[in-house]
Design a binder for these strands. Structure first.
Lengths: 384, 384
DNA sequence: CTGTGGACTTAAATCGTTTCAATAAACAAC
DNA sequence: GTTGTTTATTGAAACGATTTAAGTCCACAG
């Protein structure tokens, strides 16, 4: 099999070069339907349906019949029409997956987790991305409802979620779950990392390395993760009698770009440095912020981790690859995706059997991942 | 609106803590159908359909009638049933999107591009991820066919594509396009970066910076991009009379993990260093490889870019964020996603109107992005 | 008074399944 | 020989829309 000859003669700007203009046409293959299978096999459509779906009634069908029907189906290359099927059975086998901004590196592993679990359950994800726009969010939900998705997963990594619209789903008995956000009320399940524990782990790590002059870049106020993380930090500080230096704690502004964390990290770290108040470690809100901080520190001639340790949060893919690689508090993102999908599938099954299902709020445990960006405070420079 | 009280008491391993066990139930809201709208408005379902879809016949409908019907629809919160509609009109307004491995950072911007263009055309993407497994690939295609997607986009960033299965789509008059790969024959459109130009740009950049001792890490043999990129490099070298040093050119092995590029970069760079043959610049197959190379160089005490320039390919999100940020040859990934989606939409429109459509093989132009990882060969150390 | 042509509306067929109720045959029991 | 039960199969009615061909009704020309 050799690749077709290509013309690569194109230096044209942007999307250049449409080559190989070949027409496609074929007015054949009128889809093969169940009736066709019935015709060829000599049985009725009803029987065919029962056999091919292995419905309860199939228990009575003679083995010989089954064989004939299956053979006919195979010979014709019969493929059931999912839409027609839905019309009677009310099952679409699809789940809406809504991202607020899929560009966020946080999302990729989550998506992988969702996809994988859905695949296991023979569901297909219909993917939507709100681009952080409310109008787009609502339009997409509308489309998903028209399509009768059997469940909905919302990955709300950023900012708003309108409970009002989501309630529509609950009202229609469509199970819904959010990842990275949580709705008040008991209509929508959620999956979140245990931010408070995460905050504790981060500070604990730095503290146990001997750091006592620690700077903080806190998350934006409107992000749901910010407060509990900070609370975890405070609690741990209190428990070991360490006093947080408020003058070393800055807070990221409320931005809409997920990638703005990096720039925010750069900027706030520069601001910290200008204050000329010494710190030997920096606890950043998330990995991007941490990378930004490292960038700023390095530019100012401060070596990480030799002169300043930096810890992040999330453990996005970049964290291993950056130099130095990033110590961070890991969110098990893929597992969170799995979990959300499984919650939904469970809900779908329940709804199908007209059972009630449970709305649960999950907290998954974060995990400290130690890499190169943190190190014990060298005794020489320690003081207090 | 205050957030619901949460229990964050969980240090349990892994996915701990299901809290808030609340039952959901409601045996109400039997979906409102078109007949209901007809009933309330006092017109027939046919008229309702014509009005709500603004069908050709709507031209004859009295304005007063339209108003009444629209009002009734609104009052009832009528939402058309996409499946039922399909059964007659044969339109699903959905497009299959298949990734070979969505974990690849290369994919995220492409997905964004696809999603955005599809949204513009009121199509929804059904997302699938083959995980590089042939069986999964085929199973998913099967599911997409059952669902009667109107088009298919395959992002084949890695390894195999089975033309046999894809031909099924063409045969059924479903337009298909691949991104990052190209199928022999004229059944499937494709979008690729112009690799040859890209290769040239990379070498040209290094060459013009004065580098003459250049190491290469070439792409895996089975990757379609590898050969043309190398060819572009060779051509440029030839055109300026520069002789490529084969002993400084290594090739990545055929791996299945997209992220293996990083480790490959590390390993091959170490191997290059062991050869003790001096080089002042390194041209890597892609960004991950380049980052791996930088890692290895740095570890060996060689500063990038001071002592060795490194250039990558792709311009994935990491490239801006890494330290030093990466000079690279940019693939306009989002634009490629847009382009593929638009090709598909165009094909769908053609198929709808029973016109033929054109199979095109697009080459989009790469773009040199200069960042920190390359710099002019300092005169002091230049020689030849 | 009849015929014609527009304006407006709808009855009914259709799409490809699933599923309920009915039928028919075979066999057993009395 | 009637009745009953199990086994094997099917006719026909949904499901919720779209679309074609056929009405009505009315005004106006011949």
């Amino acid at each position: 099999m050799k690749t077709a000859p290509l013309q690569s003669d194109t230096n044209l700007p942007d999307d250049a070069a449409a080559s190989k203009v070949v027409k496609r046409s074929s007015r054949k293959s009128e889809a093969v339907t169940m009736r066709d299978v019935a015709g060829l096999s000599g049985f009725s459509p009803a029987t065919v349906s029962i056999v091919l779906n292995n419905a309860p009634l199939a228990r009575y069908i003679a083995p010989a019949t089954k064989k004939k029907i299956e053979e006919a189906a195979r010979k014709l290359g019969y493929r059931p029409n999912a839409m027609a099927r839905f019309l009677r059975s009310k099952r679409t086998n699809s789940v809406g997956v809504m991202f607020f901004d899929i560009t966020d590196p946080f999302c990729t592993p989550i998506l992988r987790g969702i996809e994988n679990s859905l695949y296991q359950g023979s569901f297909l994800p219909i993917l939507t991305d709100a681009h952080n726009q409310k109008s787009r969010f609502e339009r997409y939900l509308e489309m998903l409802l028209e399509r009768h998705v059997e469940g909905l997963i919302v990955v709300a990594n950023w900012l708003f979620v309108d409970i009002h619209v989501l309630a529509d789903f609950a009202k229609r008995n469509i199970p819904a779950a959010t990842i990275g956000w949580e709705l008040p009320g008991d209509t929508v399940s959620s999956v979140m990392v245990d931010n408070e524990t995460g905050g504790r782990l981060a500070l604990e790590h730095l503290y146990k390395l001997g750091h006592r002059k620690i700077a903080f870049i806190r998350g934006p106020k409107t992000l749901i993760d910010s407060a509990p993380r900070w609370k975890g930090i405070q609690k741990y500080a209190h428990s070991v009698g360490y006093e947080l230096d408020q003058s070393l704690a800055l807070q990221l502004p409320d931005e809409f770009e997920p990638s703005s964390g990096f720039e925010g990290g750069v900027r706030l770290t520069e601001e910290l440095l200008q204050r000329r108040k010494k710190f030997t470690a920096l606890l950043a809100f998330d990995d991007l912020t941490a990378l930004g901080a490292i960038r700023a520190l390095t530019k100012s001639g401060i070596k990480v981790p030799e002169q300043c340790s930096v810890i992040g949060f999330d453990d996005i893919a970049l964290s291993t690859l950056s130099a130095p690689s990033l110590t961070t508090v890991r969110q098990p993102m893929e597992a969170m995706g799995n979990l959300a999908a499984n919650i939904i599938i469970e809900g779908i099954n329940a709804a199908q059997e007209k059972r009630d299902w449970t709305i649960t709020h999950h907290r998954v445990a974060p995990e400290l991942v130690i890499r190169e960006s943190t190190r014990a405070l060298s005794l020489s420079s320690s003081d207090d």
